[in-house]
């Protein structure tokens, strides 16, 4: 998949997690891994960039074991940005949805028409 495109989607995924709650870095990666493959450290640069852009602020919380954890918290600016990305994504997906359903929603209808076309072409 195009790297820029994937980056944009991952950014929206990260924002979607932080819109619900303050979460620390590793837990964000874990939450995303439940649904998508993020095994190449693509998330940390996103967190860092969005923090630099003031979409997130961070605070440290001592953990029972190991290093203190840096929690990411969404700012109002971040929230507005999230809404923008989300609506653009919805528009894109809405368009894709329309394109793929142009021939109807049901696989069997599409398959039937495809078969008809194939056999028509074969008989020519």
């Amino acid at each position: 998949m195009n790297a820029q495109f994937k980056k944009g989607i991952l950014e929206l995924c990260v924002l979607s997690i932080l819109v619900e709650d303050d979460v620390y870095g590793y837990a964000i990666i874990n939450k995303l891994s439940e649904f998508i493959d993020v095994s190449d450290n693509s998330i940390y640069p996103i967190l860092r960039r969005l923090t630099n852009e003031h979409y997130f602020t961070t605070y440290l919380v001592e953990s029972n074991e190991g290093a203190p954890r840096k929690y990411y918290q969404m700012t109002e600016k971040g929230f507005n940005y999230y809404l923008e990305l989300r609506s653009e994504w919805n528009a894109f997906i809405g368009g894709v949805y329309q394109i793929i359903n142009q021939g109807g929603k049901k696989n069997e209808d599409i398959l039937r028409r495809f078969k008809e076309r194939i056999s028509k072409n074969a008989s020519k």
């Binding site: 620390y24 870095g25 874990n30 095994s39 450290n41 953990s63 190991g66 954890r69």
Partner: peptide, 21 residues
């Protein structure tokens, strides 16, 4: 911090290396 969080969860070194990239 991420490495220590991952280790707390008992992730294998191999998986961790894959995660770090």
């Amino acid at each position: 911090e991420m490495i220590s969080s991952a280790k707390e969860e008992g992730i294998s070194d191999e998986d961790l290396m894959a995660k770090l990239g």
